[in-house]
Simulated scan of single mutants.
Amino acid sequence: MRYILFLLFFSLSLSAQKVYKTPSGAKYHLGSCRMVENVSSEITLKEAAELGLEPCKICKPQNYTALGFVQSTNTAQGQKETTQCKGTTKKGTRCKHMTSIANGYCFQHNPDK
Rank of each mutant, 00 (worst) to 15 (best):
R2V: 15
Y3P: 00
Y3D: 12
I4V: 13
I4M: 14
L5F: 13
L5N: 11
L5R: 08
F6Y: 11
L7A: 14
L7H: 06
L7Q: 13
L8E: 10
L8G: 06
F9T: 12
F10M: 07
F10Y: 13
S11R: 04
S13V: 11
S13C: 06
S13K: 03
S15F: 05
S15N: 06
S15A: 12
A16Q: 14
Q17I: 02
V19I: 14
V19T: 06
V19F: 07
Y20N: 00
Y20K: 00
Y20R: 00
K21Y: 09
K21W: 11
K21N: 10
P23E: 13
S24M: 08
G25C: 02
A26R: 05
K27F: 15
Y28I: 03
H29Q: 04
L30R: 11
L30Q: 11
G31R: 07
S32I: 04
C33S: 08
M35A: 10
M35T: 00
V36M: 05
E37L: 10
N38F: 13
N38I: 03
V39S: 15
S40G: 07
S41T: 15
E42M: 15
I43S: 07
T44D: 05
T44P: 04
L45F: 08
L45W: 03
L45I: 06
L45A: 08
L45M: 08
E47D: 07
E47L: 05
A49Y: 02
A49R: 04
E50H: 02
L51K: 14
G52Q: 01
G52L: 06
L53H: 00
E54P: 00
E54I: 11
P55G: 00
I58F: 09
I58L: 14
C59P: 04
P61F: 04
P61V: 06
Q62C: 08
Q62V: 15
N63G: 09
Y64K: 04
T65M: 11
A66W: 09
L67W: 01
G68L: 01
V70F: 12
V70S: 05
V70K: 07
Q71D: 12
S72L: 12
S72G: 08
S72N: 10
N74S: 15
T75F: 12
Q77R: 13
G78C: 03
G78H: 04
K80I: 01
K80Q: 10
E81C: 09
T82Q: 14
T83E: 10
T83F: 13
T83L: 06
Q84S: 11
Q84N: 10
C85M: 01
K86Y: 14
G87F: 09
G87N: 05
G87E: 06
G87H: 04
T88L: 15
T88A: 09
T89M: 03
K90G: 02
K90Q: 14
G92S: 10
T93L: 05
K96I: 06
K96L: 09
K96N: 07
K96T: 14
H97E: 14
T99Y: 04
T99H: 03
T99P: 02
S100L: 02
A102W: 14
G104F: 05
G104I: 08
G104A: 07
Y105R: 04
Y105I: 08
C106K: 02
Q108D: 14
Q108P: 01
Q108E: 15
H109W: 07
H109G: 01
N110Y: 03
P111G: 06
D112F: 04
D112H: 12
